[in-house]
Design a protein around this nucleic acid. Sequence first.
DNA 1: ACTTGACCTCAAGTTAACTTGAATTTGTAT
DNA 2: ATACAAATTCAAGTTAACTTGAGGTCAAGT
Lengths: 133, 133
Amino acid sequence: MRALDISEVVEQTGLRPSTLRYYEEIGLIKSIGRQGLRRQFAPQTLMQLSLITLGKSAGFSLDEIAGMFGEDGQPDLSREDLRTRADDLDKQIHDLTVLSKALRHVANCSAPSHIECPKFQKLLRVAKRPKKR
Amino acid sequence: MRALDISEVVEQTGLRPSTLRYYEEIGLIKSIGRQGLRRQFAPQTLMQLSLITLGKSAGFSLDEIAGMFGEDGQPDLSREDLRTRADDLDKQIHDLTVLSKALRHVANCSAPSHIECPKFQKLLRVAKRPKKR
DNA sequence: ACTTGACCTCAAGTTAACTTGAATTTGTAT
DNA sequence: ATACAAATTCAAGTTAACTTGAGGTCAAGT
């Protein structure tokens, strides 16, 4: 498999060149060498970027994400860690589900104001304290 | 119902005083008056803050959240909007679910490296492009 | 030979969401 | 009356995650 120009990576990931350079600068990804001035990326990097994007959408910081990769750029988490991450996600999923359902309910609810709707009340009880993360 | 001191709001929400002042500064919440120098908050504001916290955890920006309240501080979204928000959330929930399941699978997977695990491969296919939001 | 376009570097700028600190005021307790 | 803790304001600082811009390089096409 041949190395990829930055433009190809941009093409395939939808990220901007400046973002890729930034990611490299902070050590999140690595380029495999240069062709003249130009960075060359390993095809591997594409999957890494997929994971990074996914991780971000799950609310992880770049720093946290960086910690999930080993020196080789391959995901490197203990089974323990993986389960902890999954547990976190499940909690987040649960909260979002409550919110989504509440929104849908309110959309169909006939109570004169949202505040008076009991489901809405319940929603507020779920949202008690900010997370640790 | 009597008005609340900032310290009581802090107590009940877990937010910091500086955060509350900041929220007021950007018009996200309002204080109902002053006792000397001191802001007084309506009890109503507590529920508003619950919603703000919940909204944040769902990935909304303070700006977006501000747009969800009317002048009176009560939630103010058309049924249409509510459904759109719910749809967004459901999509996000779906992605997070995929991620969580994949993590759990990988935690139990016996493939020598995660990359070789087919479920993991599938996960990468899900994570294609960044969101518009 | 020359222009072009895609890349490069490096410093500085940007936005969101707060936090911090210094200087001041005020309500309550002694 | 005085001290003190708890507020206040306002400007400036902070962090994450990028973006922008100026100025430079290089391979390829005309």
